[in-house]
Every structure is written in C-alpha cells, then in structure tokens.
Design a protein around this nucleic acid. Structure first.
Lengths: 205, 205
DNA sequence: ATCGAGTTGCACAGCAGTGTGCAACGGCGT
DNA sequence: ACGCCGTTGCACACTGCTGTGCAACTCGAT
C-alpha cells in the first residue's frame, strides 16, 4: 500500500474519525462520559480507542482543537469584506450557528475547570476578534450598551447558548433559530429591534 | 438541654451550617468536588459530613433547595405591587443579583445532567413566573423580540450568568454590575437603550 | 464528676474508571 | 496463500471516591 497520500481512508482512519465524531456527541450529552461509553457508542472496544489516542486527555484535546479551528474559521468567514459592524455581527452569528453543537461542547467542557483549564486560552483569539468588532460598533455609535465590549462579548456568547437550549427544548425550530439568535444578539448590543430584524432578514435571503 | 426551641446553635447546628456554606463555595469552583475536599474546606473530617447528610446526593439536594427558595423569594419580592412589566423585570433582576453566587451553583449543577436531573423541575416555578411576566410585556407591546417568551427567559437567565462571569474576570465592578445586568436584560427584551437606562437608574436610587 | 451528643481517626469493602500487556483473530492488498 | 495492520477480548494493577463500622476522645451541660 506504499502510497496513499490522497483521499484513501483505511478503515483505521475511518474509525479514528468516527470515534472523534461519536465522542463529540457523547461528551456533549455527558461531559463525564467514560472511554468505555464513547468506545461502545462508536461501535468499537475500549482498547481500540487507546490505539488511536494515548489517553482521554489527548482525545478531548483533539476534539477541542478541531472545534476551535472550525469556529474560528466560520467566525472570520462571516465578516470578511464587510465594514458595517452590525452587519458583520449578524453574518458572524449566522455563520457560527452552523457549528452550534461543536460550540456547545466547548462551553460544556470550558465550564469544568478540572478537565481542561486551557480551553479559555485557546478560544481567546476568537473572543478577542469578537470584542474588537463590538468595540468598533460602540465607538461608531452603531451599538450601545452599559457594558464594556469584552463583557458584551460574554453576553453574546451566552445568548447563543441560550437559544441553542431553547431549540433543544422544542421552543424554537432549528430553521428560525439562527435568524432569531442574530436579531437577539444585535438587539442586546443596542440596535433597535426594527432595524435588527430588517438587517438580518436582508442578509439571510 | 431539654428546650432549645429558640436561636440556640449547638456546635452541631453550626457545623452543619458551615458545611453547607463551604460545600456551596467548593462545588461552585468544582462541581465534582469530593466529600473529602468539602469536609476539609469546612475544617472537619469526611466522616463528620456523613454524620449530617446520609450521602452526597442529600447534601447537594439540601443546597439546591435552599438556593431555589432564596432565589424564588427574591424574584417574587422584586416585582410585587408593580404592574409595568419593564419595571417589574428590572426590579427582579436587581433583587436576584444579590444571590448571584447561589444562582450560579444551580446553573453549574443543572448543566451536569448526571448528578441531578431534577433541578430543572425544581426551578420550573421560577422560570414559569419569569416567562409569564415576559409574555405580558410582549402582549402589551412593552417588549419586542423574535423569540417566544419561554426562549427569551432562557436568554435572560444566561445573560445574568454572562455578566457574573464578566465580574469574576474583572471586566466590571460588582457595584455597577447589577444595574448593567438589568439594563442589558431590558435591552435584550427590546426596550430602547435610553429608556432602559433611565428606568433602572430611577429604580436603583 | 459524669453523661452524652458530636467529633475524630482509622479501617474496610465496594465500585467505577484508567491505562497497559498480550495472544488471538479477521480482512484487505499483493 | 501469505503477511500485516487494525481490531478484539481478555487480564491486570492502580487510583480515587463512596459509604459504613467502631473505638477513642472532647466538650458543654447537669
């Protein structure tokens, strides 16, 4: 099998991939899910998981790295070439929304200081970009809030989480949720409800 | 010691109280804190804790009950005799803010489905009151949001959490935080920033 | 001084999870 | 048909936490 530089997925690779995906889902449900739970859910024996990842920490770490990368990309992609802060925020929220589940994992894990204290640091760049954007909006008078930009960033983050929960509990359909989240975030930033609704509707064709 | 119906606190009672208080703080820091960690932090041996609570579950349960009761009381007290939904919400937020830490424990524990799946149910009454209030505001046109009232309640809840985090991280002083949280919550509900700021300033003498 | 509730220290059994070692097995490519 | 990689199914040692039992001790109250 000398060369397999291109898209060849030996069942080993496929397994590794599936383990990661399943682990994500499983840890989402229960941040304390054991290696055994994860392995079984992936249709594999515990021993096999250890064949791919030296230990639990490594598995989670890989997961977090992937999520951070995807999130960061979506966040950036949403706002490139846009100068209006409000539109920029709206587009970012809509873009990030696709990664809702992965994002939730990050949060769920970030809240457990014990397991992984380094997550906050890894997420810092994204948060910083977000803060910078909000700051610009506040400076330009597009946004308005009693909170300083960094704090507002926290609120926006948690707002997304809250809307996700609402979807989970059936209070909202997944389709409308993205737009609702975007409008709500803008509103929280002090953009008048009417304008926010209009802007988001316009963006999300 | 026949009668001690009144304020007598045998050191047993005092210990029990202290264990509860310390456990609250400890579990706040680490939801997985062991009975030993809690006991030591309370200046007591693990065995003693088991003298007061049959098991870990009972300890946490007591804690949750206390927090729910306090929270519920504050929430209700803040809005009695007020008919304007906006003012009602503002007062509730300011009142609840005092219990910030206890509230955080609830959330931290509620997120771990494993440990205690009954918390959501116990919090339901408070959440329901909150939702009712928001619904009234939406009906009267005081509030405005693309989200249905129950979902908006989630967002408000998470907004408070986010502001608490901001305080923890030194982005905000504890004094201003309460008012900021109130203004932000109102803003999220669609109340114009100017009006919200004014209203809150007026309430918080 | 004595009683007793509360506390302590220690020991123990049990359970659940982690990480590792090793022999056997199955299938895919050549 | 052979070889090899990945997988499986055990086994094991180790760790950390829970909940309980019991004897000894410390105080305040009587």
């Amino acid at each position: 099998m000398a060369f397999m530089t291109t898209g060849t997925t030996s069942r080993a690779d496929a397994n590794r991939r599936r383990i990661l995906d399943v682990a994500l889902a499983e840890l989402l449900r229960d941040p304390d899910a054991s290696m055994d739970q994860i392995a079984r859910a992936a249709g594999v024996v515990r021993r096999t998981v250890y064949g791919h990842f030296p230990n639990r920490e490594a598995l989670i770490s890989t997961l977090v790295d992937e999520a951070v990368a995807a999130l960061s990309a979506a966040h950036a992609a949403g706002r490139e070439g846009v100068e209006d802060p409000a539109e920029s925020v709206a587009r970012s929220v809509l873009a990030v929304w696709e990664l809702a589940d992965r994002y939730r994992l990050l949060i769920a894990l970030a809240q457990r200081t014990v397991t992984m204290q380094g997550i906050r640091e890894r997420l810092a760049p994204v948060r910083k970009e977000s803060t910078r954007l909000l700051q610009r909006g506040l400076d330009e008078g597009v946004f308005s809030s009693p909170l300083p930009a960094p704090a507002l960033a926290y609120v926006h983050e948690q707002t997304l989480i809250a809307v996700m929960e609402a979807v989970n509990d059936g209070l909202l359909t997944a389709e409308e949720a993205g737009r609702c989240a975007a409008v709500t975030v803008l509103t929280t930033a002090g953009v008048p409800a009417s304008g926010a609704t209009e802007l988001v509707a316009e963006i999300a064709d």
